[in-house]
């Protein structure tokens, strides 16, 4: 199922224009990530902050809050 993502630069676009990096994780510059902290993911069924890349557009990275069950995007994040 598809959905629209709002790129901060280009506005709402089809999700197929974007690459998905996954849930937001600690900054490795602040917190050294090794072993499980590097590899494991929360993999929630619910809302999470996640990082997307506008691959076929402006090539900007941005963070959205998405419900992994419904693909609903929280517009306020």
């Amino acid at each position: 199922m598809g959905f629209l993502l709002t790129c901060p630069h280009c506005g709402p676009r089809d999700y197929t224009e974007f690459s998905f990096e996954g849930e937001l994780r600690p900054d490795p510059y602040e917190t050294p990530l090794t072993g499980m902290t590097l590899w494991a993911r929360e993999n929630v069924a619910g809302t999470q902050d996640e990082r997307w890349f506008h691959d076929l557009g402006c090539r900007r990275w941005f963070i959205v809050n998405r419900d992994t069950r419904t693909n609903e995007i929280d517009a306020d994040v």
């Binding site: 900054d27 890349f53 090539r59 900007r60 990275w61 941005f62």
Partner: peptide, 12 residues
């Protein structure tokens, strides 16, 4: 590689 540079520039 370009996406990688942009990704970390944005995060930091």
């Amino acid at each position: 590689a370009e996406a990688w540079l942009r990704r970390w520039a944005a995060e930091w």
